[in-house]
Design a protein around this nucleic acid. Structure first.
Lengths: 216, 216
DNA sequence: GATATAAATGAACGTCATTCAGTTTCGATT
DNA sequence: AATCGAAACTGAATGACGTTCATTTATATC
């Protein structure tokens, strides 16, 4: 009886899912605590409870693991943003809110501080994972006559690096956190919306995000 | 007669100048050829003709040396740009020309390709070394009513990372080199100048730079 | 159960960045 | 000139890590 002893997937597939997931989680914990350079593959493997060599059957290299970690972080934040913005009517506001929220997280959450130390990795993850949303918003807002963006992918590429650069400077204390507002204004100016409208758009009240999921 | 046999500086000081200079030159040659990660301190020391340990009496670490190398690259390019732009009458055009020239070099000179792999290092060097010029231009153009920049340092910080990000993507083949023009337009939009004027400004004919100095 | 295949293991390897004990060079002083 | 203390230089040694690979273990199949 209770004829549910047959796993739908074999044990191997299940364990591989668990292992990969455990490695991403462990990678996130260790990297966000000590930074990529100080994080060792041995510590990550141990926290994930796998052998040191096993990591390399899931990820080509340390950097490859770091990329997966950062993509996960971006994915979760993108989902939380999407959840709130799909009630917005102005597509320009969707973009503005997304950009603002990412900077707020990057500068406000201590765990991001270490991730920012590899700008091209985190900017790359941001470009790839949030790109589909951001580029869609840029194009929607352009069609609606709000923005004037000739190449949405290029604009988003520039935005990701600018966001990471400013966030890095703020977490290092080189720029005042109060400049976040002006940063958003400049990113909006980049879309060709004009300065006045950019200022108004950046100053609009923002809804709060749903709480963070516990499991990254 | 010819009473100039007394060295104004002692031998030690002279040798130190030579050593530091030789190390920066060697660092540039090795790093731009193989990239920071593949460049070894031993190879750089050997090319500079000093012992491996000597490097550390001039630079705190490998990264510290790389920073000096990149600052030198930026300094030389800044001088060549300054040479040409101080005849411009429109301060907005000075900024536009500078930005355009940096991107052209970053994407056109194979030696930059390896330097771009450390975005925060090269963006940092660009910010510090070219900042005095760029920020001056942004403020001049704002005073002249051409730009509308609230915080020139912030705008330049965003620009440096965006420039590095786009250049990196172009050298990696992820973006078409033909997008350089549009990149300049977006950077100009960021200054609040408005899209039409940005397009006009980016399209103006540009003078040629003086030839590169041989010694970096 | 027996067997073949795939995955996991962790000790060992090789590659550097960095250090430091010993050596050389310099220049102030006699 | 000769001497001597200090400062700079040297390069072999060190230690830390990412990555590899010969073995061991687990799983699926017959």
């Amino acid at each position: 009886m209770t004829a549910s002893k047959v796993p739908p997937k074999g044990r191997v597939a299940l364990r591989q899912e668990r292992n990969r997931e455990a490695l991403v989680q462990a990678g996130y914990r260790v990297i966000s605590e000590k930074g990529i350079d100080s994080a060792t593959m041995h510590e990550i493997a141990e926290l994930a409870d796998v052998g040191a060599g096993t990591v390399y059957s899931y990820f080509k290299s340390k950097d490859d693991l770091a990329i997966s970690v950062m993509e996960r972080v971006m994915h979760n934040l993108a989902l939380r943003i999407e959840e709130v913005t799909d009630t917005f009517s102005d597509p320009a506001q969707v973009y503005a809110f997304g950009v603002r929220t990412v900077i707020d997280h990057a500068t406000g959450d201590m765990r991001w501080k270490q991730l920012l130390n590899r700008p091209e990795v985190i900017a790359g993850a941001m470009f790839r994972v949030m790109g589909p949303f951001a580029i869609r918003d840029l194009e929607n807002a352009t069609r609606a006559g709000r923005f004037r963006v000739a190449d949405a992918a290029l604009t988003w590429k520039m935005a990701t690096f600018a966001i990471v650069g400013v966030s890095l400077s703020i977490t290092r204390g080189e720029l005042a956190p109060s400049l976040i507002e002006e940063t958003v204004v400049r990113l909006l100016c980049m879309t060709g919306i004009g300065e006045e409208e950019a200022i108004e758009l950046a100053a609009r009240p923002r809804p709060v995000l749903s709480p963070e999921r516990k499991t990254l």
